[in-house]
């Protein structure tokens, strides 16, 4: 299972970075979403992978339990990335409608040499 989770994180990250390098808003937003999925799975795995373990301590017997903190972190991260995706979609839409291009690069309509 470790291999499966690790390769899933790796593939999601690679695909996300590839899409972000496309420099058009739609692929970039998709790439950002893939990256946030990758990071969510990654955060989930930071508490060690455990199958069928209770989520909290049991005071009646000694049991192995799944670490609940990463799950709380993932919840926070999901909420934040969802909100951020909504914001970036709106801003990208605004940029597209006002400038009639979905390029992220700004150097085209700029005089050469003034953006170090």
């Amino acid at each position: 299972m470790e291999l499966l989770v690790a390769s899933a994180v790796g593939i999601l990250t690679a695909a996300g970075i590839y899409l972000i390098l496309r420099l058009r808003t739609f692929p970039v937003i998709l790439g950002l979403s893939l990256l946030t999925y990758a990071v969510n799975v990654f955060l989930f795995a930071t508490g060690r992978l455990a199958v069928g373990a209770p989520p909290v301590l049991n005071k009646y017997q000694e049991v192995a339990y799944a670490d609940p903190l990463p799950q709380a972190l993932v919840l926070t991260a999901i909420v934040i990335s969802f909100g951020m995706t909504a914001v970036v979609v709106m801003i990208a839409l605004g940029a597209y409608l006002s400038s009639k291009t979905d390029k992220i690069n700004m150097t085209d309509d700029h005089t050469a040499g003034d953006d170090a």
């Binding site: 972000i20 808003t25 970039v28 950002l32 951020m84 914001v87 970036v88 801003i91 990208a92 605004g94 940029a95 006002s98 400038s99 992220i104 700004m106």
Partner: peptide
């Protein structure tokens, strides 16, 4: 338009 484009870069 320009501010929006700069904004997209900033956000991404």
């Amino acid at each position: 338009a320009k501010r929006f484009q700069a904004g997209v870069q900033y956000v991404v």
